[in-house]
Design a protein around this nucleic acid. Structure first.
Lengths: 328, 328
DNA sequence: AAATGTTGCGGAACCGGTTCCGCAACACAA
DNA sequence: TTGTGTTGCGGAACCGGTTCCGCAACATTT
């Protein structure tokens, strides 16, 4: 089953291969030859060799997707959305994992360029000068998801507004003694913007806030939960992510506290299973999958030269559930 | 920043491009020319054009990975493992998603072949004649993960043994009134082998077993949990996957039952967060990530023509935790 | 009827590599 | 010195497409 080439088609149809090429790419071809070529192509089920095409055109039908990790809920859902839409539009998704190393993000930008992807979707955590340099160098459209920067087209979650809205809700419910468990500031969106949204709401209501900082890992949040369970007496623990909430819940359980009886806990991000836990977790749902689809649309628009806004916000949805008590 | 080509290198070094090519591919080149070429390559940081290479060699440094869904814990972890090892060995992972449509698995086998991937790792759910035909047609090494078939190299989870071991443990603990919540048989490994391992253990102990069947989705298991909570009086609900266990737990909670006080529940698969839930869930841990790494190793071995066993088993580990009570 | 487009098509060059072939230079054995 | 191997290297063909150029046939304008 060796590869049928354009030469074979040309020979079988009795025309020049340039004519076949023109036929395939919508050039001017007469009806008679058009028919002949079409028949031969059907019979042989010929498919053009992509390498030969890319060699000349210096382009592929691939969109590179740079993800910090493969095993995160957010990344997986986003990838689903991207892949769906891309497949519809005849493009392919090429995922590269950076294992959370900033250095590898930059490497991969260059690497994807070398592979001549048509565009790049980048699920970012932090944007540095070197990133910008790379983006500039490679001359390929880049769309950033989840972070923002003035010089890069970006699709961002409304972290501030969502956090503010959720925080305000908590204030309305009468919580005034708050513990906030956040993450390091190097992740601007989560570490800073999201936190600031919450703090704004808390401050406006004159609430008391104590801040802890941890990683994105469940395990690291468990001791914090335990500590809170043993030492602190807040009415509500607000966590920067659902993973952190999970860890805190575990820690509290270990310390013998019940939620929301003894203390309330909220998450952020909207993992599916936060709903089926008992108690179900109050959180903010971010539309990861749809964001992926939109990102795909946007990068394709950039390819065709359309102008799109530098910064686009997605939506959010409060999920008010059992894990946070209404005090009043 | 246009691409430096082998012609440029040849010209700058004052040699023929065939010589440069030989230099790059370890042919015979004299020391003097070797030095010249090396210097020029350094200066220009030349990198060969992959399309041109693939055009001739009809090969790439890519391994295709066919996954049924992007947002499953098992798939994500496995992909991580694959990617890690592949990256180490200078290969790249090309993930394609089939959205759980068997038809698309077959399509993708052909499609990956067209893209000239060096090998394919296939996270399968079911193996049909048409799959085998495709594998035969494309003439590319394929490694199947999670299912087995006599004609395909496969890396499988010890579903039977693991289920048997866990089931036996439950018997030892005195459970005799069992409800098994499984999945459809079309997934051989999970729907049949896993179930049979459990049933074997239950039957050997003369336990009473009632069987329910559901999908892989959390939501579909919730009503089953509720029904069990209302109508049934087993001591233990054994679920075929952790997702199902999650749904059942929710259903039971909705029905006002506590776990393990009123009834015990077990899962299978070993999601990370089964440990941090309250109660923590008894389950079987399958080494997804390591399996991915091994799969990568094996497919690379197949590429180099080494012979490996048609069927390789991975390990498992029982995670005995709070959600299952010890009756005696 | 002559001048001026249009349209359809073939030939050849080109994309950037790899590989085959043959020649020249040199070393060594006879 | 002649013959026989090696080794290093350049030239050319090739992989399978796309695109430019030019020519011939036909249609349109004046």
């Amino acid at each position: 089953m060796k590869q049928v080439t354009i030469n074979d088609i040309a020979k079988l149809a009795g025309v020049a291969k340039s004519t076949v090429s023109r036929y395939l790419n919508g050039g001017s071809v007469g009806q008679a030859t058009r028919d002949k070529i079409e028949r031969v192509i059907q019979e042989t089920n010929y498919e053009p060799n992509q390498f030969a095409q890319s060699l000349k055109s210096k382009q592929t039908k691939m969109i590179g997707v740079i993800v910090p990790r493969l095993d995160s809920y957010a990344a997986s859902r986003t990838m689903m959305g991207i892949d769906e839409r891309l497949t519809e539009r005849g493009y392919q998704m090429l995922v590269v994992n950076t294992a959370q190393q900033t250095e590898r993000e930059i490497e991969q930008l260059y690497n994807l360029a070398k592979q001549k992807v048509a565009g790049i979707i980048w699920l970012g955590t932090t944007v540095t000068e070197r990133h910008l340099q790379a983006i500039q160098d490679i001359q390929i459209p880049v769309l950033l998801i989840g972070q923002e920067h003035g010089h890069v087209h970006s699709l961002v979650y409304p972290d501030f507004d969502a956090a503010y809205a959720l925080g305000k809700q908590f204030m309305d419910w009468g919580h005034r003694d708050i513990i906030y468990v956040g993450v390091e500031e190097y992740d601007i969106a989560v570490g800073q913007t999201r936190r600031d949204g919450f703090l704004r709401a808390f401050n406006e209501a004159g609430a008391d806030v104590k801040i802890y900082t941890t990683s994105f890992k469940i395990d690291d949040a468990i001791p914090i939960g335990m500590q809170i369970g043993h030492e602190q007496s807040a009415s509500l623990v607000v966590c920067a992510t659902d993973n952190i909430a999970l860890g805190v819940l575990k820690g509290l359980a270990n310390a013998g506290k019940t939620v929301p009886g003894d203390i309330s806990v909220s998450g952020f991000g909207g993992y599916d299973f936060t709903e089926v836990l008992h108690p179900s977790i109050t959180t903010v749902h971010l539309p990861y999958r749809r964001t992926g689809s939109r990102a795909a649309d946007m990068i394709l628009q950039l390819l065709t030269g359309e102008t799109i806004p530098m910064k686009t916000f997605t939506t959010f949805e409060l999920k008010l559930r059992e894990s946070v008590d209404i005090l009043n």
